[in-house]
Write a protein that binds this DNA or RNA. Sequence first.
DNA 1: ATCAGAACTGTAAACGATTACAGTTCAAGC
DNA 2: GCTTGAACTGTAATCGTTTACAGTTCTGAT
Lengths: 331, 331
Amino acid sequence: MANIEAVAKQAGVSVASVSRVINGTAARADTEARVRKAIAELDYQPNSAARALKVRQSEQICLSFDDLANPAYIAMTRGVGRELSSTKYRLILSSAFSSVEEIVKHLQTMGRGFADGLIISPIYSDERITKLISALQMPVVLVGTLPEGVDVDNVHVDSSAGISMAIEHLVETGRTKIGLINGPLNTKPGMRRKAAFEKAIKAAGLKFDKSSIIQANTFSPEAGYFAFSEIEDFSKFDAFLCANDQLAAGAMKFASENGISIPGDIAIVGVDNTNMASLLHPTLTSVDLKAEERGEIAAKLMLDRLANPDRPSKHVTVEPKLVIRESTAKK
Amino acid sequence: MANIEAVAKQAGVSVASVSRVINGTAARADTEARVRKAIAELDYQPNSAARALKVRQSEQICLSFDDLANPAYIAMTRGVGRELSSTKYRLILSSAFSSVEEIVKHLQTMGRGFADGLIISPIYSDERITKLISALQMPVVLVGTLPEGVDVDNVHVDSSAGISMAIEHLVETGRTKIGLINGPLNTKPGMRRKAAFEKAIKAAGLKFDKSSIIQANTFSPEAGYFAFSEIEDFSKFDAFLCANDQLAAGAMKFASENGISIPGDIAIVGVDNTNMASLLHPTLTSVDLKAEERGEIAAKLMLDRLANPDRPSKHVTVEPKLVIRESTAKK
DNA sequence: ATCAGAACTGTAAACGATTACAGTTCAAGC
DNA sequence: GCTTGAACTGTAATCGTTTACAGTTCTGAT
C-alpha cells in the first residue's frame, strides 16, 4: 500500500503538500494537479489509523443497544444509518448485550477512542451503567428515558402518553375490561409500560386490578403466545394492550388458533407500529413510538454536538401516535 | 486521557514493560502487579488508533449490504454480530447503498485500513464491483453467488434448490397453475429466482408460460400488494411463489381484503422464512434460506482467514429448507 | 526594478502505541 | 562467591499522518 511519502515523491512535492491537498487547504493549481495525479496513479488512500492518531478523531460513531432481534432497534439503526450515510462517519454497531456486566465492559472500552461519539439506548436500568455514561469523556446521545443526574443529549418519546391514547381509544370503542401483556419488569420499557398502564386505566375511570397485568419474560412473539395461553378465563377481558407488536402478534396467533375472535371477543393494541402491524390479520392497531425517527434525531444531535462540543445538552421529545387499524374495531 | 507513558511513570517502569503486560508477554510478577495497579488507578485504556497504526490491524470487520430494510439482511447481521461478539473485533455496518456508484466508492475506501476484513453481500451484479472485490488487499467473505473469476471465501445457499422444493411441494398438494411474484430483475436474487422458477416449473412437468411471472419493483410488502392488485384474472392461478416473505405478506393482505381465500383459492409460498412467516394468517409456507446461519458462517470464515491468511479460499454451501405451514394446505 | 504582504511550500516534531536490540538481573550449579 | 544462561527490562526507532513554523515564491503597487 502506498503511503503519503510515496505520493509526495511521485508528485515531486513534500508530504505536507500532499496532506494539504487531501484536506483541502490552499495549494497552487499546479501542485494540486500533480498531487491528484500521483494519488490516482498509486491508488493512494490515506491511512485511517495514522490520521485518527494525529487528529484524535476516529470518524466513527458507535450505536449500542441490547437486542438486535427487536424490530424497534432495527428501525432505530435504520434511522441512524441513513443519517450518517451522507457524512464522513462510519457506524459501529454494538449489540447483543445479555447482562449489565457486558454493558459495563463495553462502556469502559469506549476510552480507547475508537469512536468519536456514542449513541446508546440502554434497556436495563442500573446504577453502574448510569455512572459510566456520565463519566464518559466523549459526546453521548441517550435514546430513551434519561436517568436522574445524567446530563447528555437525549431523545425521548413519551410512551406513557402513547399508552394513554391507546387506553382512551379502547374505552371510546366500548372496551372496559382491559388487560396488559407486559414485557419483562427488569427492563426500563417493562417498568414504564406497567406504570403508564395503571395510570391510564385510572385516568379513564376504570378500576385498576393488578391481576389484569400478565408478565411475559421477553418481548418476543413466543412470549406473547405463551402469555395468552396461560389465561384461564378470557371472559374477564375484552381488550389487551401488549407491550410491543411482537407480543401482540404472538397473542393474536394464539387467539386465531383457539377460536378467540379479534376484535370480536378481544381487541388488541400493540406498541411500536412495526411494519408487521399492517400485515397481520386482522391488521394491528399500534402505538407508534417512532423508533426510526428517534434514531435519525439521535444521529443529528450527535453530528451537531461533534460540530459544536461546548453547547449545552439538548433534549428532544417526539410525540407518539396511535395508528388505528382493524384489531380494535367496535364489537 | 492517560497514555502509556503516564502509566509507566506511575508504575515506575518503562513503557515497554507496560505494553508487555497489556499484551501478555512475560513480565515479573512484581512488575505486572505494579503496572496493573497503575492502569487501574489511571483508568488507562490503550489508544486504538496508535495500536492500529503500529500493528497494522484495526480489530474491526466491515459488513456491507444494500438494504437495512430487508429482514433477511437483518438476520444476517444478527448472525455476524453474534459470532463477533465473543472476539476482539468490532462490527462496522455499511448499508443503504442505492447505486453501484456508492458501492464502488465504499469499496475504494476499504484501502484506508479501517477494517481488517470485509463481509459483503452484493445485491447488484456489476463488473466494476466484481473487479474491485477481487483487487481488495484484505480478507473478503462474499455472501451470495460468487461471480466468475472471483476467488474469495464464500458462503452460498442453493436458492434454486429451495425454489424446486417449493414448486414440488405445490405440485404434490395439487396445484398446477403456479405463478411467480418476482423481485426486481436488476438484482441478483431477482434474476436467480426467475431462472430457478422456470427450471423448476419445467422439471415438475408443467408448461412454462412467461405471463405467469409478475415483476414487482422492490422486495417490499407494498410491492407484493400492488403486484396482486394488478392481476386481472385470478382464475388463471391456483398458487404463487413470492420471491420473499415481504412480497408474500403484501400479496396475502390484498387477498384477504378482496375475498381471495388462501389457501382455498390460491396457495402462497414465501422465501426467507423470516419470523413474520409464522405470525401471518394463514401462517406462511416459506423457503428458509438460512440468512442468520449464513451470517454466522461468514463471520467464522472471516475469523479463520484472519488467523490463517494464506490458506486457500473456502466455499461453504448451506442447504435451504422448505418450512410448510398453512398457506399451502390442500384445497 | 523594488518592495511589502499575501500565498504557498518544506522541514521536522508530534500523536501513542509496539518491538528489536542491547543491557541488566536472577537462579542454580559449582 | 563465581559463572552462565535464562528471564526480564529499558532505550529508541518506527508506523503514516497532520501542522506549527520558518522559508520561499508570487502579486501588484510604487
